[in-house]
């Protein structure tokens, strides 16, 4: 079993390595030194305590979105709509934050609660169609992203725009702020929430009857059905939970970082989270590390344009390469295994 584990992890590591090597080649092609880029990235991500805090700040939403994706993947559901759920959650939290006056603490919890509800409600439509008509949730959740982003833009620009200024809502009241962890950074309690969620999800999947059923729905749906697990209902529930956590990620971004909602509020965190979860093979605990990896790439890249001639977009390229090699890795995984061989032969 330990050997299997190692083999699986080694696959992920190979995937990242392949992506980095290809990335290095591309960096060479644009006339930069890969070593210099790497050093700059590392310095930008971990150079001093502020940089580390900055990395963790970027990691937080990726981690929470990653946990959201893991929850879906466990039950065999591909929630590609986390980005949209994040936007709606972010807007919902902002609205509670600026439109109501509530006591400190309670205000924040109310805002987060509405973010959760908004995320869950947003995925409820694809989830319902999946459960009722067996519609492919990948397609419907992807499409729901566009609607979510545009819908929140509409709210921000036409209904709740701050007079004068940018396309953003009024700032939320300080009573709804998510407390910061350190004085020198905007890094906030969201990170702790993310870690607790990841560990909590792992424990629930491993140690509860419900989690067992969901896991079986994800890995062997016919077996689960036979054993009395309601496959459709669990698929619905899992998507809803996934959406709820996606909404929470947005709420935490609003209350912890931006203190308002604005257009282009948290670009790509939902997708990064999904990739982090896939790279972690759907394990919430492993997602902590893959999210950190993507967070470091993001924050390190800020320094990239300042210190080197490489563009920040190179990071996007590397990410895309990772996605490609992770998917390719599924094909070569467990080559020595006779079952995998069987599959190889048969397809």
């Amino acid at each position: 079993m330990i050997r299997d584990r190692l083999r699986e992890v080694s696959g992920q590591i190979i995937a990242i390595a392949v992506a980095l090597i290809l990335g290095a080649i591309i960096i060479l092609l644009v006339g930069e030194s890969p070593v210099r880029v790497l050093m700059t990235l590392l310095r930008g991500a971990f150079g001093d305590q502020e940089k580390i805090a900055g990395t963790l700040l970027q990691t937080t939403p990726i981690l929470i979105c990653g946990v959201a994706a893991c929850i879906g993947l466990r039950g065999g559901m591909f929630n590609v709509g986390i980005e949209g759920q994040l936007f709606l959650g972010g807007f919902a939290a902002a609205w509670v934050g600026f439109a109501f006056a509530l006591p400190p603490g309670i205000h924040m919890l109310a805002a987060l609660a509405l973010a959760v509800v908004a995320g869950a409600a947003w995925v409820a439509i694809p989830a319902y169609f999946r459960a009722r008509y067996n519609t492919n949730e990948v397609v419907s959740t992807i499409l729901s992203n566009y609607v979510a982003v545009l819908l929140t833009s509409y709210f921000t620009i036409f209904l709740f725009k701050r007079p004068g200024g940018w396309s953003e809502t009024p700032p939320i009241l300080a009573t709804a702020y998510l407390p910061e962890l350190f004085s020198f950074s905007r890094l906030n309690w969201g990170l702790v929430i993310g870690l607790v969620l990841a560990l909590g999800a792992a424990l629930i999947f491993r140690y509860t009857s419900w989690g067992y059923g969901v896991t079986m729905v994800g890995s062997a749906p016919k077996f689960a059905e036979y054993g009395g697990v309601n496959v459709k209902r669990q698929g619905f529930v899992v998507l809803l939970l996934s959406g709820a956590v996606g909404g929470l990620a947005g709420g935490i971004e609003t209350l912890g970082v931006h203190h308002r909602f604005m257009e282009g509020f948290a670009p790509g965190f939902g997708f990064d989270g999904l990739i982090a979860a896939l790279l972690a093979n759907g394990s919430p605990v492993a997602t902590i590390f893959t999210a950190l990896f993507f967070g470091a790439l993001r924050s390190g890249s800020l320094l990239l344009e300042v210190d080197t001639s490489a563009s920040r977009e190179i990071i996007t390229v590397i990410q895309a390469l990772i996605i490609l090699s992770v998917s390719a890795q599924v094909l070569v995984k467990r080559r020595g295994d006779s079952q995998a061989g069987e599959r190889r032969w048969k397809f």
Binding site: Y212, M216, S219, A220, F223, A224, Y226, G227
Partner: peptide, 14 residues
Amino acid sequence: GVDRNASIAANMLM
């Protein structure tokens, strides 16, 4: 009858 990838113990729990 089984989830091939799961352990014997997990399969016997169903």
